[in-house]
Amino acid sequence: MKKTSRQLQKEQTREFLLKTAYEYFSEHGILNTRMSDIAQAAGVSHGTVFLHFATQEALVTEVVETYCGKIALRTHELAKSCTSIQEVLSAHLEGIQEYEPFYTRLVIENRLLPPAARDAWINIQSAVSFHFGRVLERTRGEKQVAALPVSALFNLWIGLIHHYLANGDLFAPDGKVLERHGDTLIEYYMKLIHYETEEEKHGREAHESQKGEMLLRAPWREAGRSAF
């Protein structure tokens, strides 16, 4: 059935309000924002906003569900062909980066959101943990990965990233936390979860001694008392 122009206009207004609210939330926070702020930012009357969203909770839920759905889908698209943990982590950060200001608000406010909105937020983590787990299981057969459950390795990563995002004002005052720290965090995390095989250890030691680093070593280490 063909939609009337009035129906189309109503849908367009709704889309526009969702996008305006998304942008406003990204900049000012989600729960701090009043319906009248959205109306003003969209240049419409208070009544128009209420016509589409009966309550603030309804508006927040729909914006968060819509954009979390986009982030989860984008992350899934980027991660589905990944074959190494490092690739999955890069895909994860790339997916977030496109929505970084809004995602950061969610990191800070998700516990306080309406239940359906919070579920949508957790679903982003599930999209990532799905690919993380898939690739980790494959990696375990090929590489030495720290002997910890998938959930522990996943939460270690998420905790690290979310800590940096939640405190972005301290780590990157310009607001671009992932651009500034993303690659380094991936590198550190990879070093943390992959332990060296004997072969890799010998290769590294040969390389270090070549560089003359043996000279810098403390004598007690040479005496075979390595505590590590």
Binding site: S126, F130, V150, S151, A152, F154, N155
Partner: peptide, 8 residues
């Protein structure tokens, strides 16, 4: 099971 296994 998936939520428990991958996210604890």
């Amino acid at each position: 099971g998936f939520l428990i296994r991958t996210q604890g």
